[in-house]
Amino acid sequence: MNPLQETFQQTESILRTENANIYYGQFLALKGINLDVQKNKVTAFIGPSGCGKSTLLRCYNRLNDLIPSFRLEGKISYYDRDLYAPNIDPVQVRRKIGMVFQKPNPFPKSIYDNIAYGARINGYKGDMDELVEKSLKGAALWDEVKDKLKQDGRAISGGQQQRLCIARAIAVQPDIVLMDEPCSALDPISTIKVEELIHELKEQYTIVIVTHNMQQASRVADTTAFFNVKVTDQGNRQGFLVECDRTEVIFQNPREESTQQYISGRFG
């Protein structure tokens, strides 16, 4: 065992995926996933379009439950609790495991209420002004919006909206923040701001980020998982996990040929 792998295995795993098969109806979208997400680390999911990385991400906070044909085989656990056990309330899962989406999606409410909404439905009893300020500071947005908290959340720039969505997610005080290509709709400067934010956030949160941008993965992630897709005999596209390791290993010395090819831009 090389020294890199040793440190990789030292930290505690917060999300554990064991033999997961994800179906939409009869169609197997992701096959045989075994993957651990380490606590207080940034884990990036990379891979070509259609490889199911976003699908897996949405399993972690049970957002796929909203799709009627969705079905999971295998086990996904948060610490040692099975997220898909019958007595688990998906609403409670989502309060622990927050999400930031591809397109900034602030509510048609004021900046203040965008943040306060999640806290209110979670029964937050403390000082709301303080929480809003703390969350906006946490998302590096406070200085830009502190004088216009009553303004509509959709009236600010796209990059600011996305940071507002991050602030909204952390205001609920989750353990894990899932990010589904959070920068794909943003300009380069806003992207850098969000990436800097991710670095700060991992002190307190565990972050799982899906990204199309390999440089982004190499910049922000401690661990990187590479997914690929193959076409089955029936002509369906089926995603699978190729490998998951420390980001340096994936980018400099991957075990698999296909990872090497994807990283160097030869496909995907």
Binding site: V91, F107, N122, R168
Partner: peptide, 11 residues
């Protein structure tokens, strides 16, 4: 998007 945002916050 808005539905998902709300569900994602635990609504």
């Amino acid at each position: 998007d808005l539905r998902q945002a709300a569900y994602g916050l635990g609504a």
